[in-house]
Simulated assay, not measured.
Amino acid sequence: MTRIYLIRHGETIWNREGRLQGQLDSPLTLHGIRQAEANGRKFAEISARESLSLHASPLGRTRQTAAIICELSGLPYEEIRFDARLKEITLGEHDGYRGWERLDRDFPELAAQRRADPWHFQHPGGESTEMVRRRLAPFLGELQEKGGAHLIVAHGVVNKVLRGIYLGLSEEECFALDRRQDGFHLLEDGAERFVATEPAPD
């Protein structure tokens, strides 16, 4: 049996500003740090009763989130497998752009192409969601073949696509999934449930 705990990094400065991070980085806000701390306290309870294999995206915001979780849970940071397949989708030349509204206004032809086929659309030098699915499917397959319990710290789009693969969702259903940062998704027995964690006041 395979059990997967799927965490999105805590809120970042660019999340708060509405910027499109992609594979660029900005640090966690104080609220994002508190979100990671809340997850760390929860995983102190979980890791006391089961052994966890640790995986994370190698980008800065996931490393920072994972470090906080490990410090508060007692999980060994040095045992995290940083896997490039867990990096967030990149918008290529448009990573770091100041929001979808501005991007669509500045590049209306690209906006029309994205709306026409959002799953396969690529920004210049970037990835499509389908390309992300293709790099994540083998990763998920490896975890399911191995079995056991796995903690993953990754990103909004990546986590949606992982959940979509696991649950057998359509492209539209996958896009409709949430990207919460106030807890984690538990994938088990072909289903998912969200476990909310309560951050301390900023």
Results as ranks from 00 to 15, higher is better:
S73M: 11
C70A: 03
Q113M: 11
H123F: 15
F107H: 13
P76I: 03
R133F: 14
F121E: 07
R134T: 10
G74N: 03
F82C: 00
I89G: 01
R135L: 13
E93K: 04
D104C: 00
S128K: 06
F82W: 10
L91H: 11
Y97N: 05
E93F: 03
A66G: 02
R85K: 06
E109F: 14
D106G: 14
F107M: 08
E78I: 00
L72I: 07
A56G: 10
T90E: 08
R114E: 11
R61P: 07
H55L: 12
W100K: 00
M131Q: 07
A111G: 07
W119G: 00
G99E: 11
V132P: 01
P108W: 15
F121W: 13
Y77H: 03
P58S: 06
W119I: 08
F82N: 01
L103M: 12
G126M: 02
R133E: 14
P124C: 06
C70I: 01
E109P: 08
Y77N: 00
R102N: 10
E79Y: 04
A112W: 07
R81P: 03
A137W: 07
E127V: 13
R105T: 15
R102T: 12
G92E: 08
E109K: 12
R61V: 07
T129P: 06
R63K: 14
G126A: 01
R81C: 10
T90G: 05
E109I: 13
P138N: 05
Q64F: 13
A111S: 12
I80P: 00
G60S: 01
G60P: 01
K87R: 13
L103G: 05
T62G: 04
R98I: 13
E127W: 15
P108F: 15
R114H: 08
L110W: 13
P124F: 12
Q122G: 05
R115Y: 15
E88Y: 11
G125S: 10
P58E: 07
L103S: 08
G92P: 05
T129H: 15
